[in-house]
Design a protein around this nucleic acid. Structure first.
Lengths: 255, 255
DNA sequence: GTGCTTATTTATCAATCGATAAATGATGCG
DNA sequence: CGCATCATTTATCGATTGATAAATAAGCAC
């Protein structure tokens, strides 16, 4: 009680200003006890919400206020703010990944185009939310390795299955190793769809075309176009190019 | 480093501790006078660099330090930090836009595919830099209108010219108003290419395929695929669909 | 009820932030 | 040279940040 330190000292040193009038009522806090693991989930969940809105510079006090809890309580559950951020990463990029996606893509009981349509409808339902997209971008800008690792998952579990599926469709060898050019080609499809979500959800741009229709058009155009390009890759593979240094030729034969 | 003023003051006020030992040499600042407009450009330029690295929460003190100038000097050139940020926006999204791009796309003295190739090589040379991409993302996450306005420019000056060019190529009416579905289709090409830059420059992902080759493949695949999809659009336009409510049919005929 | 455990709050620190006022000195003009 | 202008620095404020220590009280066991 007696240890008035910095503020009191400053005040006393600067002037009088009799600081103890109009003191707001102390306003006792209602104190509810919740079992730790539930609190933990509560904290992470609200942290996801707050960080998605404001970014990782959002204050711990604001988070505590939204949870109707005092700020130091956070430090009983997370040693530091960066630990809280790690928990947020895990919640979004690990817990929300569905292992069934790669199966959806390669399962041949349905036509390829329909499979891609269904996969992307499901995938975008997961990631086209402010929480997912915004935190993904915030994390990427922070330079954490999360995004680089996530991108590897996308390549191995989504894009390479797609490449194999298209090869089967075209009668090409589905077991040949997927070439980097092919992966890159599927990235343009994936990135194009991804960017639709960014425009709509993050930039708040009004997209007149619905998500399903956009996916349908993108997939249809891609499959048609990718066919000739990938046939070109395969031909190049079968008959190695005459001059290996002239690798800048435009690939694939026109229709 | 420069905050030992406060500390020294506190020390002197609180107790003895003979605060003037080990006192770092006051270290007079070299004071150089530079004409205001040059300073201004210097400030904006370094601010672009700093904000691209750290984000808009980068401190004014750090910026001043990089400029080898004291922090209050910034406030002689910018009334507030947000004014500095506005200047950064202008430098990147207005000053770096080349009005010649739309001409590059529609100029028919070259084949369409080559035009798109050259345009995207030039365009990506402008935007595939940490400064451009990272500040674009930071700004988008902040919710400033900059991005929404930029996106409009992309649509009207880049994507709609592309759509018209493809129509000419296909023998369709180039003067018919560009339909939203078409714009959206070109967004998938644009977004796909854009996302290559994000992966490489922002996420630091190692892309084994060079920029030019990636553009070549994306453009080739897109043009082949977009052809059938856009022919589907045109047919739908000429002969209005029987049941206007069943708009979920997949567009375009398969090859 | 009594008492113990521990979830929660109160009080506070040191650092950093954007911003302002006043002192200083480099530069060009006469 | 002397002098005035103004670009630049010094000093400092008040607010806010992440984090810690100590006091408090909710809820369970008995």
């Amino acid at each position: 009680m007696e240890r008035l330190t910095t503020m009191a000292r400053r005040q006393a040193a600067s002037a009088e200003t009799s600081a103890d009038e109009a003191a707001p009522p102390p306003e006792k806090r209602r104190r509810v006890r919740i079992k730790p693991e539930e609190r933990y989930r509560e904290f992470v969940s609200k942290a996801v919400e707050l960080f998605a809105e404001v970014g990782f510079d959002a204050g711990t006090r604001e988070l505590a206020q939204r949870l109707d809890v005092t700020q130091p309580l956070l430090y009983r559950y997370f040693p530091s703010k960066s630990d809280l951020i790690s928990a947020v990463y895990k919640e979004i990029y690990l817990d929300r990944w569905k292992p069934g996606w790669s199966g959806m893509i390669e399962d041949e009981s349905e036509p390829l185009r329909a499979r891609l349509q269904h996969f992307y409808e499901d995938y975008t339902e997961t990631i086209f939310t402010p929480e997912w997209l915004r935190i993904y971008m915030f994390a990427g800008l922070r330079g954490v390795d999360i995004n680089a690792r996530y991108v590897v998952n996308v390549e191995t579990d989504l894009l390479m299955p797609m490449a194999r599926a298209v090869r089967r469709e075209l009668g090409l060898d589905p077991d040949a190793p997927v070439r980097p050019e092919e992966v890159e080609l599927f990235w343009t499809l994936h990135g194009g769809i991804f960017y639709y979500g960014v425009r709509k959800v993050v930039y708040g741009f009004d997209c007149p075309i619905g998500k399903e229709q956009m996916i349908a058009n993108a997939v249809a155009a891609f499959l048609d176009g990718a066919a000739s390009v990938m046939r070109g890759f395969a031909a190049e593979e079968a008959a190695p190019p005459i001059a290996p240094s002239s690798r800048r030729r435009s690939p694939g034969s026109r229709r």
